[in-house]
Design a protein around this nucleic acid. Structure first.
Lengths: 355, 355
DNA sequence: GCGTTTTAAGATAGCGTTAACAACAAGGCC
DNA sequence: GGCCTTGTTGTTAACGCTATCTTAAAACGC
């Protein structure tokens, strides 16, 4: 009666199901999955069709049991924004366990120290490295990796794929467009005198956000005023200084857009300290949508950057790149952002008058 | 931070190594590992000795391949403090992947809604449930679980083990002692008029912290002033109200201890809004040592609660309890806390005068 | 053409563990 | 003593995949 008393309850399709459907042997399927050479294109196609038809995906447990080389991915971090880091880590670990890859996470404080840590990581026998900001822009690290033949995924860089060396993959959002949208949103509320707090100048993503800000201004025909731009470093502390500076202006802005949530939170703090209400006296907007943005009050209007998903994507890209022994790694993913409106913005009280 | 030690390469000891050393069969070892009944104590001991000698640990991949029932642990959360939650989640996922158990995480907003969500989780076929605060005190959920015969681990409860029903495990710190130590620390700085912001009154851990505060006061012979105690809910928002209230007093406190970091951060914000410097005009202390405590400025002096470790412990206890099919689950872990001194406290400017 | 190399595909043997069942001893009951 | 329990231990066959070795087919050289 029973066809086969499978011990597993819900029997997902296995490699032999695929083999049967495709009319080839087990090994051929295995070869296709692992992207090995020596499979005729026609055969490969058949197998791929079968895989798609059955919606098959390899069982990681079996894979690692069978002695598939254990993949080890390194991650070098040094992030001033705790919220960003913890969410990134969350996504990383989650995907790593799902894909059965081993993560070697190493902290690396700022300074030229970073090259040493990277070297140490490579020496430890790593198959690839993931670099979240700010390390995603550390050229010294990047070239070290290339010399060692270790592929890398950089996350949240502002550099376009074309400008990237080979064997470097990337995951990012369109920072420029996001900042532009945010700025346009603030202008829609009637604000014309808008302050901007830059991110760490060493990061290209900061440049993109700044460009987006300026582009929106220009698109609306608002004259650019350099005094309304304050430098920042993505830290809460730097946001404090930047906000002080902007609000010290003889004609202070009615809205401030910060390049991340930490600095936006700092801006809210400074505003409160000066007796300004947020949002009725000052609109404050953040960037990234980290947990901090909903911790404080008022909760921040911000750009949601899918940090955990970006981390997951990075791990996945790296894992497949490593498994595909023959092919050379490459790939760039652009994820969607979205504007999250919360309570830190409001219409400008001065009704728009210019033009 | 290395996620999982490499097993491959110079082959780690396997179950058959253990069997050979112990002079028994494979299955007997397997039974001992999984704590099944029907193994004679003498045999069990021999096997355990062999395991210890070889430093053996089972290979999760093989285990799950061989059709070991996949353990599924549910987690019901509803935490107002984002920092707490994200760190808890981090620890949970980390340990889950290490132990090869599947986590089913379900959000459950407040209200009597929670019982339904729990029922749903049970219906989904869960082997156990982890309840971080505030759900760790939801008696309705707890009794539902007991009826269904599903074991539970409650985390960060203030309830002592004796007061816990059977089949409920717990992980916590000594909240009372921690609060007492913190209060004593603040008194050491010369403060005598110390405000206290309570946590959510539905949580027993809040009571323990409050008790610790009062005990320290009493120990120092300081008269207790009810006006210096403000209610709170562990949220930033509630901390704002509580701080306003305390600082509105005709003779405001020179130090405020909040029952968590979120409310402490809110207190700092309120102080700044009123032109008070922290710490020179007002000492503010938190509790939990979440990322928020180092995000803001000044960074908070706080009690380090090892949230991630507590989560890891909870997952581990649950996993072993489930694997030990025969034995009835039980166990209570008390982890260490520590006082972390940062920049939000300072000596009282009024030099101590009373007695 | 015929042997020789190259390439593509299949066959088989594990990887470390557990499920299912078989085997065996020790009691208990008539 | 025979026969069933009961409790403890052992045997065997998967689990889903990859390494490694073989074989079949194709390409090549002269």
């Amino acid at each position: 009666m029973t066809i086969r008393p499978s011990r597993r309850g819900s029997s997902a399709p296995t490699i032999s199901d695929v083999a049967r459907v495709a009319g080839v042997s087990l090994m051929t399927v295995s070869r296709v999955i692992n992207n090995e050479a020596n499979v005729r294109p026609a055969t490969r196609e058949k197998v791929e069709a079968a895989i798609a038809q059955l919606n098959y995906s390899p069982n990681p447990a079996a894979r690692s049991l069978a002695g598939a080389a254990q993949i080890r991915i390194g991650m070098l971090y040094s992030n001033p924004s705790q919220g960003f880091l913890s969410e990134f880590l969350l996504g990383t670990l989650d995907q790593a366990s799902r894909l059965d890859v081993q993560m070697v996470v190493e902290k690396c404080d700022i300074g030229d120290h970073e090259v040493e840590v990277a070297r140490h990581l490579i020496a430890g026998g790593i198959d690839g490295v993931i670099l979240p900001p700010p390390l995603c822009e550390a050229d010294a690290v990047l070239s070290l990796l290339r010399e060692a033949g270790v592929p890398a995924v950089v996350v949240a860089t502002g550099r376009p794929p074309e400008a990237m060396p080979d064997a470097v993959m990337s995951v990012r959002i369109d920072d420029r467009a996001a900042a532009e949208e945010m700025t346009r949103h603030v202008m829609t509320l009637g604000h014309r005198r808008i302050g901007f707090i830059c991110g760490n100048p060493n990061l290209t993503a900061s440049d993109r956000r700044y460009e987006g800000f300026r582009a929106a201004l220009e698109g609306a025909g608002i004259a650019f005023d350099e005094a309304l731009v304050a430098p920042g470093l993505y830290t809460y502390r730097s946001g404090l200084d930047a906000a002080e500076r902007l609000l010290d202006l003889s004609v202070p802005p009615t809205a401030i857009i910060a390049s991340n949530d930490d600095m936006a939170a700092a801006t809210v703090a400074v505003a409160h300290r000066r007796g300004l209400d947020v949002p009725s006296d000052l609109t404050v907007c953040g960037f990234d949508d980290t947990t901090l943005s909903t911790t404080i009050w008022p909760e921040l209007t911000t750009i949601h950057q899918p940090i955990a998903d970006m981390a997951r994507a990075a791990v996945e890209m790296m894992a497949t790149a490593i498994r595909q022994k023959s092919a050379e790694p490459a790939g760039h993913r652009l994820l969607d952002y979205s504007l999250i409106r919360r309570q830190s913005d409001a219409a400008s009280r001065r009704r728009p008058r210019e033009i």
